[in-house]
Simulated assay, not measured.
Amino acid sequence: MTNVYRHGNKVFNLYKKLPICAMTAGMGSIGTAPIHALAKDFRRALKDSDSPYYIDCKAYTIEDVAIKARAFLFEEKYAALPDPLPAPHSLEFWVGGCSSATHSHELWKIAIVNGNCDPPERLCGEGETGLFVGGQPSPIYRLLRGFDESIEEPLLRAGVPPADLPQLLQVMAQHTEVQLLHPAMPIQDAIELVDFLVGMTKSYYRFLPGADTVGGETDIAVVTRHEQFKWVKRKHYYPSALNLMETDHV
């Protein structure tokens, strides 16, 4: 039996006072270690000059941080599990931000799927803009693209040859996909767009029969080369009024 918890931490500042962030979806732990704790361990290792994961805060790349994150999560933690995890299982870990020597943003994804983990994949960089979804993407795909992957089976049953299916889906998306994101969108509008999409996803799974696999409070952070990492919305497991000196825990 698997529990669905509503208070998991999914967004992290990987290096405080630097524009480096991470986000996770999928498995909530590797063995008995929760992902949020592992992210904090990795953050500490990035600052430790004796650690193989150390980075120079004045000379680093987001790609290097992503490579080190894969080594930490997969090679050190996942591979050390005493028993293989039963399939299917997956963990997605995104690393994004700005490298020290550039003014543009980058986004990299690490995916552990049933015991396999390819090198980090660059999703965008050099000024590119995109909307990337993980975990439970179906509601957002249905809204923005007009359909999700569940459409493939009925199309095949209707007689579409498997070899023609990718091209057909591409043509369909060209006529049904809507663009809500723009490269020049103000930060506040981007924040509100993300909040809307997450809220819509939570409502979708709330009313869908079965467990609420997406829920709880939403954490939102913004990373820019000017303001670095900034929290916009976040939850605390402790009352702020009783912890006046504490300002950051994720």
Results as ranks from 00 to 15, higher is better:
Trp108Leu: 01
Lys109Cys: 07
Lys109Pro: 00
Ile112Leu: 05
Asp118Cys: 06
Glu121Ile: 02
Glu121Leu: 06
Leu123Thr: 00
Leu123Ser: 01
Cys124Val: 14
Glu126Lys: 14
Gly130Ile: 06
Gly130His: 06
Val133Ser: 08
Gly134Cys: 12
Ser138Val: 00
Ile140Phe: 00
Ile140Thr: 04
Tyr141Met: 07
Leu143His: 06
Asp148Ala: 10
Asp148Trp: 02
Glu152Trp: 00
Glu153Ala: 09
Pro154Asp: 07
Leu156Arg: 02
Gly159Tyr: 10
Val160Tyr: 02
Leu165Val: 07
Gln170Asn: 09
Val171Met: 09
Val171Trp: 04
Ala173Asn: 11
Thr176Gly: 08
Glu177Gly: 04
Gln179Asn: 11
His182Thr: 15
Pro183Phe: 12
Ala184Arg: 15
Met185Asp: 10
Pro186Ala: 14
Pro186Thr: 10
Asp189Ala: 12
Ile191Gln: 15
Glu192Asp: 15
Asp195Thr: 01
Phe196Lys: 12
Thr201Trp: 00
Tyr204Met: 08
Tyr205Pro: 02
Phe207Val: 11
Val214Gly: 08
Gly215Arg: 04
Thr218Trp: 00
Thr218Lys: 00
Asp219Val: 01
Ala221Glu: 07
Val223Asn: 03
Thr224Asp: 14
Thr224Glu: 12
Arg225Trp: 05
His226Ile: 10
His226Ser: 14
Glu227Phe: 05
Val232Ile: 15
Lys233Gly: 04
Lys233His: 05
Arg234Trp: 02
Ala241Gly: 03
Ala241His: 11
Met245Asn: 11
